[in-house]
Amino acid sequence: MGLRSALTVLAEQWEEIRGRLPAAEFAQIAALVDEFTREGDQEVSEEIAEEIADLLRARLPHEHPFLVALTDRSERLAPDPERRAENLADWLRLSEPLRVRLGRQGSTAAEVERAIMARMRALPALREDELIANGEDPADPGLIRLTTADGTSSWPAFQFAEDGSLLRIVRWINKVLEAADDPLGAADWWLGDNGRLGDAPIRLLGRIPDGQLVAAARDEKPGV
């Protein structure tokens, strides 16, 4: 189901949908929306979103934009926002208009992205000249490259072995995570606690089979 699109429609047409429902029924929807915007667990949040969809499916005409959005099967609800930085920003972009409708404010996506970037920039990292001296290509799409607003780039050191060479498994997983397009999200995947693995992937390098790390990364990018 196109849960993301449908919830976006719900925020956009909040008052119109309110007008279609008895007060008690809309209060039930609002309570679930409030719960959804506060929830950070992937499975629980999906259950809440599906419950919202089920309730509105029974109350709205089949041609309503909310129900039309639900038919989009190309979408996938954003995973647990604590597991991945970019998805956290996406999650908040989805939740922000719903929070406004509930008269409640929270951290903005931009604020979250700035905080995450500050965390990443505080990590040990290599400069471009160090990267080149180690025989690595700064433009390699298998590398996580973090760039500040002034154009300064750095490459988090956890990607490299003690001799400065890029770890092959890290390069492979970075490509699965599409690090070239989403370096911040890829870096946060490595550093954040992973529910499937039971720990941050970076702490499990060399401790568990590489295949388990690859499978966990593919959970984030199921189409890759």
Results as ranks from 00 to 15, higher is better:
4 R>F: 00
6 A>P: 03
8 T>Q: 15
9 V>D: 04
11 A>E: 05
13 Q>S: 12
15 E>G: 13
16 E>W: 06
19 G>D: 15
19 G>R: 08
20 R>L: 12
20 R>W: 08
21 L>Y: 03
30 A>W: 01
30 A>D: 11
31 A>V: 02
33 V>S: 06
34 D>P: 00
34 D>C: 05
38 R>N: 09
40 G>R: 11
42 Q>K: 05
42 Q>V: 06
44 V>N: 09
48 I>L: 14
59 R>M: 10
60 L>A: 02
65 P>I: 00
66 F>K: 00
71 T>N: 12
73 R>F: 08
75 E>P: 03
77 L>P: 02
77 L>G: 04
78 A>K: 08
79 P>H: 08
80 D>P: 01
80 D>N: 10
80 D>K: 03
85 A>L: 12
86 E>M: 10
87 N>M: 11
89 A>I: 11
90 D>L: 14
92 L>K: 07
94 L>S: 10
99 R>I: 03
103 G>A: 12
104 R>H: 08
106 G>C: 04
113 E>W: 02
115 A>K: 07
123 L>C: 11
126 L>F: 03
127 R>W: 07
129 D>R: 09
131 L>F: 02
136 E>R: 08
138 P>K: 07
139 A>M: 11
143 L>R: 07
143 L>M: 15
145 R>C: 15
146 L>N: 08
152 T>M: 12
152 T>D: 14
153 S>L: 05
153 S>G: 09
153 S>F: 08
156 P>V: 04
162 E>Y: 11
164 G>R: 08
164 G>C: 09
168 R>S: 15
175 K>E: 15
175 K>I: 13
179 A>V: 05
180 A>F: 00
182 D>C: 04
183 P>T: 04
185 G>R: 02
186 A>Q: 09
191 L>A: 11
196 R>W: 09
199 D>C: 07
200 A>W: 00
203 R>L: 14
204 L>W: 03
206 G>C: 12
206 G>K: 07
211 G>N: 12
212 Q>I: 07
212 Q>P: 00
214 V>C: 10
224 V>I: 09
